[in-house]
Design a protein around this nucleic acid. Structure first.
Lengths: 128, 128
DNA sequence: CTATATGCAAAGTATTTGCAACATT
DNA sequence: AATGTTGCAAATACTTTGCATATAG
């Protein structure tokens, strides 16, 4: 995943277009409606490599689907994600980080990491 | 899922035996080695009903598998789970709850819920 | 006896892999 | 030309569903 290909560019273009978390399927659909179709397999492969590069973040929805979004790679953050449209905000949580390390120590666990995401309805989708 | 069946009893017996999160498959395997075999489908169906009753908690591992464990249904908590053996501790986090509601308000999101789990290596598995 | 639970086999998701054709460098 | 990339079809992993049979109440 180091060559410049039309598919990769198209994928990045869609990702750069919004702040919403999209599934591989969502991305595939959007590309198709923009007449820039890319195989679903290729979408998966590119997303995976973008995740490895730290350019894209993933959240697993409670329904068990992975959703991807372009993210700041420079600071540790979590997301507040809209259940309906997927828009999201990057949020920091110094107090959570601190809490987590205290808990880890108290129970003698090492190498403790945490998974934290907030899900809600954004201002636009309040009704839905 | 309201009748007393041998299968349901066997499943509960295994769940009551430990503090580890088990996948449906794990449970199915343990039942088989105890000579109390239960169909995998039945394991899934019972787990699902136990989850609905609030008796069992689920965590989705980063690998995308659902794991189940008997849990206190009376208070909101999260889990500190060992990546190797699955043992886990229920932990409370008043500061996280508070933080989450502030974030939600600040961004105008409503009905905000959160998914939070801590993963690490327990004392027994430090080496592994 | 009746309704619910079981369990096999088959279907359904979400994602990954094999591999030949293809495009980038 | 050489190697990385694509995309279809097939494989995988987990979970759910259809349906006939068994069983609790």
């Amino acid at each position: 995943m180091e060559r410049r290909t039309a598919q990769r560019a198209a994928i990045l273009e869609v990702l750069e277009g919004g702040r919403a978390f999209l599934s591989a399927q969502d991305l595939h659909d959007r590309l198709r409606s923009k007449k820039r179709s890319v195989g679903l397999t290729t979408v998966y492969r590119n997303l995976q490599s973008l995740v490895e590069q730290g350019v894209v973040d993933v959240v697993r929805t409670p329904a068990g689907e992975s959703k991807y979004r372009l993210c700041s790679k420079d600071f540790h953050h979590h997301h507040l994600v809209c259940r309906h449209c997927g828009v999201s905000v990057e949020v920091e949580s110094p107090e959570v980080e601190k809490w987590a390390s205290v808990i880890a120590r108290d129970h003698g666990f090492s190498d403790v990491t945490h998974e934290l995401e907030l899900f809600g309805n954004c201002t636009q989708c309040k009704n839905a």
